[in-house]
Design a protein around this nucleic acid. Sequence first.
RNA 1: GCCCGGGUGGUGGAAUGGUAGACACGGAGGGCUUAAACCCCUCUGAGGAGGAAACUCCUCGUGCGGGUUCAAGUCCCGCCCCGGGCACCA
Length: 844
Amino acid sequence: MPIRWPRAKRCQHGEGVVGLISMANGYLPSEFETRWQQRWRDERTYEIDNDDPRPSTYVLSMYPYPSGKAHIGHVRNYTFGDLLVRYRTMNGYGVLSPIGFDSFGLPAENAAMKTGEHPRTYTDARIEELSSSLTAIGAVYDWRRMVKSHDPEYMKWGQWIFKQFYNAGLAYRAEAPVNWCPGCGTVLANEQVNADGTCDRSGDLVERINKVQWFYRITQYAQELLDDLDELDWPQRVKTMQTNWIGRSEGAEFALPIADADGNARTDVAGLAVYTTRPDTGFGMTFAVMAPEHNRVDELTTDDQRPAVEAFRAEVKEKSEIDRMSTDGPIDKRGVATGSSVINPFTGATIPLFLADYVLTTYGTGAIMAVPGQDQRDWDFAKAYDLPIVRTVAPPDDFDGEAFTGDGPAVNSGWLDGMGVVEAKAAAISWLVDNNYGESKINFRLRDWLLSRQRFWGCPIPIIYCDDCGEQLVPDDQLPIVAPDDVTFEATGKSPLATHEGFLNTTCPECGKPATRETDTMDTFVDSSWYFLRFADAFNTDEPFSVEAIKRWLPVDQYIGGVEHAILHLLYARFYTKALADLGIAPKELREPFARLFTQGMVRMGGGKMSKSKGNLVAPEAIIAEHGADALRLAILQVKPPAEDVDWEDFQLDGCARFLGRVWRLAASTADIKNRRSGVHTEADVEIDKLVHRLIVRVTGDFERWSYNTAVAAYMEFTNDLYRYVQSDDGPHAEVLDYAVDTLLLLLAPPVPHMAAELWEMRHDAHIHLAAWPVADESKLVVETETMIVQVNGKLRDRIDVPAGIADADAEALALASEKVQAFLEGEPKKIIVRAPKLVNIVA
RNA sequence: GCCCGGGUGGUGGAAUGGUAGACACGGAGGGCUUAAACCCCUCUGAGGAGGAAACUCCUCGUGCGGGUUCAAGUCCCGCCCCGGGCACCA
């Protein structure tokens, strides 16, 4: 609440601060911002050694993909991290604040195809641009520790880690589908495939073809990745998303015997394995469905259905997984009968076997039992194909839907009848086990991590293929394997690695005979899965990092990044950390990389995501030139809670710059204010002093809970009060004012580091960022009177000033005595709720 | 489609279940100025009543419909709309 100054004390006649404070020292950020940036660098203010005596804390913003000059989205991300680094430093911590670049990736390769420039020189230039942008917004790092994905030293240890994973059985090869463009003769990223399934370069229809590729066995850690989420101080929504992504489910896997022409179970072939989370509904299984890619499709398709099945499979090949998972649209064209039948083991009935696009090979067994009574998609399918529907769970009487997925007594289910879902599940599973049809099974939606990329600009997978010895790891003394420089990029999109003779041909490390290299590179998520560990020991040439260094800094105390990374990056990094710990490369006890996570929202432009490809980027340079980096930082903090998405149009640069000007004028010239006084403190002096201490509490609390927009409001409110104080007829008390301004500057040092530093040096000839964060004096926080609100039936009827320590009975008496309240009372109150000193609610 | 968020004045937002709209932008009025800009001060959710005025008071109001509660922007249920992710963009 702002102070309500008595009218007479206010400045009435425009004398204003103009008259009191010199205008000569205008706020001109361009005169000192770059100077301070240079000084932080020269004075190594934010460099830190591993033997630094201060208590450790590790603040990390996700390392950026170097796309060139920063855009406002970057600025927002790195402002939050920078504020925290400066805040923690003022709190006495030795803060590890490193920066690096996620410098492998598709855009550099695309640029190479356009301009012929080698991705390395292109990427190095983009890193320079982004680095200078980060410096220009005042972000401070220990630049010595910089990690770049494409740095050969980092690649060397990345490949070395792959080898350790391979030796531990965590890396393996298997077939997996890729997007294949027949026109370009190349594999496409999902991003390069248009919504209609065509190649964005050639326009050809993209196919899904199978290719042998490398995987990391992340599923081995599925349970641990799920369990350990509990101990993380992460946003609940990110934890929920990871939980759902891992997708643990308990159910049963069992076999549906294949039926012969007479409807009897064949004993010469294995049954069709299906996975279900609802074994209790088995009696309602009226058909079964396989994924179109299931490896038994050929075997189980009858001759008369073969043409239809082949046509269907060709069609599905062109569909994306998202389209296939969708339950939108007509379902009648989304499946086809195989002509074969299987047997429902529960009922003994012969039921038809279909293919449908919504069943995926990647989940469960790639085949399902269909129970239309309890599953809406099965219901729709049954309707479209005229299949019987049998309810096996009785829906409530008022149920008017189709498939019923809720709980209820089992019906039409033989020996399960009458049981609830939980009981029936257990009973059905024991029955399946007892009769040798199957077993209970925990299934995860999580799939192994496909890390092969058919790209040039990535970290090569350190494998050699020998005709005689098979796949061989590249020996350590040959690492890193680095992509060659003498390559040309063709507009078709082919990776030059696969055709570069010098790269491709090598000798087998085992037998010495001619052999060939793996030409796929690693997913860039591999690079980003351990860079935060390398930061802790960035100069180590003997190992990726020492256990000691990791023990000193890890886990990251505060990780900051976009919510778009909520699943993939954060899950992969967690997996890497666990695997590295289990292999003894990282400390055994390091189970999680990021103790606390903050996910900030994105900056949108015209309602859409800001991105280079959309061409709607806003560059910070022009804004910094006009308003200064501090004003931009403050506007970022002020405009919206950090976790939420924000539209660029809503930024209030002018207002923030105006506020900084107000602080500047006040702080730069307090000594010149004409009517400064000394001696005895007036009521106003005491009041201002209390506000200073309340401000410390507010800002500190807001920083701790990432509520920067309200912290900015607190600064502004306080500054408004200070202005009124300075302009009051009595004038300001010199000591009170100086203390108030100094404290304001200290509190402003993390968000607006340049201006705070400049003013502090003017006032104290010292470095504000090395000063201690202010601490509030408890005795000055004591509140003597509170405004008690009085409600009648929950509606506000009066406000009464009461002593903070008022007893409930006295509060009640005061409330009832109020004339305003009396007017709304008829007869005796039914009930009175008293929450002294804040509230009394009278129920009439 | 599935998973995860979000809907509060003209705008961005604030509000441990307890005074809805702090702070800022925009707007209005006043001061300073020959004038303008800058700057300083005040007012500003909608509708209405009383008063010469300062001001006082009433009703409505947090996407829609229900519910829980003495009390709901906040908790629960069901809708509607908007945004993000969906495994090869990073």
